[in-house]
Amino acid sequence: MKLGKFLFAAAAVTALSTGASAGTLDDVKAKGFVQCGVTTGLAGFGAPNDQGQWAGFDVDFCRAMAAAIFGDAAKVKYTPTTSKERFTALQSGEIDVLARNTTWTFSRDVNLGFEFIGVNYYDGQGFMVRKSLGVTSAKELDGASVCIQTGTTTELNLADYFRSNGMSYESVVIETSAEGRGVYEEERCDVYTTDASGLAAQRSTMSDPSEHILLPEIISKEPLGPLVRHGDNQWGDIARWTLGAMIVAEELGVTSANADEMASTSKNPEILRLLGGEGDMGAQLGLPADWAKNIVKQVGNYGESFERNLGTTTPLALERGLNALWTDGGILYAPPMR
């Protein structure tokens, strides 16, 4: 990835020279829509639906931002970005926010001049095996053949994990995830490893998903989150608290169905603050007072968005797991809104 490094360096240099101009919110308000960078297609996180509309978990974040700013979740334009060009698109101002299951890492945050505004999905590298193998833990995989995508961090994580546990493995190298599924289904490898959300997506396409299980061990941290440019803190705050409002709304039990009712009947000051009945949080962000209510009403709270796009009722059938609220045994946690 020499070219990639060069481009990143070039991006960083240009970032220093042009700088990120403040006032993204004013620009966005002036043009009348949020330009949102999304993936070119990843099941559950962002893909065009049958009507040609973008839908998915990351797409919901874009819609939530539009709901907060304009009171209309439809005021988004999507720019599909590949993993190679996503950072330049944000850097150059082509997009206002990037919501594209991007892992929050030190170098991206610091060196590339971006600001991750939070984590909307905690992912990690997992293992999938056939049930007939009789394995229940990754610790029992000594000597297994492992299907792994070449040139990824998953390859390095795998080597580290097996070495630190004193086990050996035989890698079956694959190029793409579609190829990986084929190889794994033909039983040319015992184990298939990639990010846990990807494994779930792969499993849902197999002829009999129930024959395969995901092992409980998660061997790497992949905190995925939306990001904005450095240098415009107001815009960063709006993005951060858009996500925050979705999580807090779930904590407080505010859903798209009861948001209106709660705003008028609730006695809970936290809910009233969130929904704009009390305080001036919206004004502090430069947004209408009912910004959070619009998010919840039009897009839903975090849990609704998760269930709609990734949850157990969808073909992906992902459990909340780490992404459950901190009160439910997960690590999903938003700073208090006060």
């Binding site: 070119t40 297609g41 990843l42 099941a43 559950g44 893909a47 065009p48 639906n49 049958d50 839908a55 720019t79 599909p80 970005t81 590949t82 060009e85 698109a89 579609a178 599924r181 997506a201 792969q202 849902s204 396409t205 796009n309 969808t314 073909p315 992906l316």
Partner: peptide, 20 residues
């Protein structure tokens, strides 16, 4: 990030309803 014919072919199968 432009969806030509082949790009569409790859993208439509990433929708959870049609995955794979």
């Amino acid at each position: 990030g432009l969806f030509d014919l082949l790009g569409i072919a790859k993208t439509v199968v990433t929708d959870a309803n049609w995955i794979g």
